[in-house]
Design a protein around this nucleic acid. Structure first.
Lengths: 191, 191
DNA sequence: GACGCTATGATTAGTAA
DNA sequence: CTTACTAATCATAGCGT
């Protein structure tokens, strides 16, 4: 090994990585390939060591799909989807093989689709989510309080002036529903 | 630190791992918890660094589901399932144009995945959602108040005793994040 | 594109609290 | 069920091939 090579080797090694988008196209490509491989390996080890069922699905920026699963991607996704409820239930045929889960009411706590895995959120997304919760809650509590301590008609007006959510999807429907709720409930316990 | 402790510490450290099922129940449990966390972190890094879409679904031996996804589990799984099930799929049309969304950063204001289309919810689901918001909000506001008016340490303890969400998925991660948030923010305006 | 290399940072097994 | 700790092992960035 000559001195030049030694010097180069010294400059090698992983720098402390900053977790943000890699701008350089080629580096990003290489990093994706390596880390995808590493991710699949980790998933494999987890399933082997702990007897867990794992499925991983990855889409590259170019839209190419990669997947890993134990005992199979299909098996795990079917099991998972059978637990999920919500508007996306066009996937229901996939749940046919999960009778043991569906029939066992004791064991299965069926999480609603809005039961968020907060670990998956980036920091800014978490802050946005907190903000979202605050606003939504503000709307609900104020509306209920209005209903309890004032005339329902006043509550109606109040709702329209409340700070809304950051969602443009279904917002109108939400408030329509909320107003209906307040009208329908004769007695609401103050919060 | 007494000599006994020192001796024990010397025996610490990771042994060369053999990738096979961990027989000892407790060790397997701990290992699962740690490696699941690590797996999700890796997945998160992959999506951030390389702009990839990633979904990870894990079932523990006890049947408890955990999931991670960016931009969301649902999004990635829909895309995946629509890809493998062919053009005449049973999925909603909304899932077919993912690549367009991704490539058009300027035009598309990508809605956060929690921006719920409330109109699509059944009545009981709406009530559940309201309950979910109330509980989540309760946790957040009380925690923030604790942080503002008491010592952060007291807030930490308080958080553990707060009513949790109805979600078993990611609950622990949420509180982990919340605690981290409170520790990181030097100044929080009281609500 | 993929693979080999290697210093370095990241992960984690075993354990105790 | 978590969390902290430490040393041993692993993963990988930036190279070259």
């Amino acid at each position: 090994m000559n001195p030049v090579q030694v010097k180069k080797r010294i400059c090698n090694g992983r720098k402390k990585i900053e977790i943000k988008r890699i701008e350089k196209e080629e580096n990003r490509q290489v990093c994706f390939s390596k880390r995808r491989k590493g991710l699949f390996k980790k998933a494999s080890e987890l399933s082997t060591l702990c007897g867990a069922e794992v499925a991983v699905v990855v889409f590259s920026l170019t839209g190419k799909p990669y997947c890993f699963g134990h005992p199979s991607v299909d098996h795990v996704l079917r099991r998972f989807l059978s637990n999920i409820s919500g508007p996306s239930d066009t996937l229901s045929p996939a749940s046919t093989n999960c009778s043991e889960l569906i029939n066992d009411d004791q064991l299965v706590q069926k999480p609603f689709w809005w039961d968020v895995d907060l670990h998956s959120l980036e920091d800014d997304e978490l802050r946005e989510y907190e903000k979202f919760l605050l606003e939504q809650q503000n709307v609900v509590t104020q509306a209920v309080q209005q209903c309890c301590f004032q005339a329902p008609e006043a509550a109606m007006e109040q709702i329209d002036t409340l700070p809304h959510t950051n969602s443009d999807v279904g917002e109108a429907d939400y408030f329509m529903w909320l107003q209906q709720e307040i009208m329908d409930l004769p007695d609401i316990d103050p919060i």
